[in-house]
Write a protein that binds this DNA or RNA. Structure first.
Length: 271
DNA sequence: ATCGCCTCCTGCGCGC
DNA sequence: TGCGCGCAGGAGGCGA
């Protein structure tokens, strides 16, 4: 489900409700997520204040004075801000209740997400340490990416989905940013020119920023912590648009499979 | 190091 | 209406 814009939308939704609030209790209803939720989490978190809610790639980082809670939403996860007596739904796996009766609830039908704790410097956490720079920062540049692409013969779409090269971009925004850049998803990464790499980077930033402004993309079950859907879905040019006309030239959008994921592109505009 | 493939899991829409 | 099948916003981990 969630790519960077959806995770950022979630961050902005939960931060004002839980920052500077103290954890009163934690309930783990089903801890078998991608990795088992630490059964000591209730004891670890109780009485700790959330100092900040930040984001790195698609990970949410909840800082406390003793360590960080690291939350990934996987394919189908979401976080909701509720009050402590909110009715329970299927797949509501973890509740964090705060001292002002605010409830942060993790819901995840497919359970590909994760909730992890570390008391070490969070950026050195195993899952974070090898990530590419933040795509909306100036560190994510052609100076950084172009030399790396030169070493990869794999299709650019597949490389865009690899966290060592680009973070935050998943299947929707990879397809959309390639369309905006007139680059075929099938093009080997090492055949992109410097100019094409610069254009692609620019468009990744544009598309992520636009999607954040729209509250993300809701295909089926994403919603922000207050329950609102994301409206970027109305601006998708190619994702899920197979057999529909290209918005630019009216040629039929084509769907192919790359690395077990669907890719969509206009065979006339993208080369 | 790079690559291709597999896996975890539930729900939904489709065709028969 | 009821099935079985394929597919879905991710990404770590494996063997070659």
């Amino acid at each position: 489900m969630p790519e960077l814009p959806e995770v950022e939308t979630t961050r902005r939704g939960i931060a004002p409700a839980i920052e500077n609030n103290t954890v009163q209790s934690v309930t783990i209803r089903n801890g078998s997520l991608r990795w088992p939720v630490d059964s000591n989490l209730p004891d670890l978190l109780k009485g700790l204040k959330i100092l900040s809610v930040k984001r790195r790639a698609k990970y949410l980082l909840l800082a406390t004075e003793k360590g960080h809670l690291i939350i990934h939403l996987g394919m189908s996860g979401n976080l909701k801000i509720l009050t402590h007596n909110a009715p329970l739904q299927k797949h509501d796996h973890v509740d964090i209740v705060f001292n002002n009766n605010i409830l942060l609830r993790y819901h995840d039908p497919r359970r590909f997400g994760s909730i992890l704790w570390t008391d070490k410097p969070v950026n050195q956490f195993k899952l974070l340490v090898h990530l590419a720079p933040e795509p909306l920062s100036s560190d994510f540049s052609s100076e950084w990416l172009y030399p790396k692409l030169q070493k990869r013969k794999t299709a650019i779409k597949v490389v865009l989905m690899d966290n060592k090269y680009v973070v935050g971009v998943g299947n929707i925004y990879a397809n959309e940013s390639l369309f905006l850049s007139n680059i075929s998803p099938l093009k080997p990464a090492n055949t992109l020119s410097l100019k094409e790499t610069e254009l692609l980077i620019k468009n990744i930033k544009i598309i992520l920023e636009k999607a954040i402004e729209q509250g993300g993309t809701t295909l089926k079950d994403f919603s922000s912590p207050d329950g609102k859907p994301g409206y970027f879905v109305q601006q998708l040019s190619v994702y899920g648009q197979d057999n529909k006309p290209c918005p630019t030239c009216k040629t039929s959008i084509v769907k192919v499979t790359q690395a077990q994921r669907a890719s969509f592109y206009c065979p006339s505009c993208q080369h």
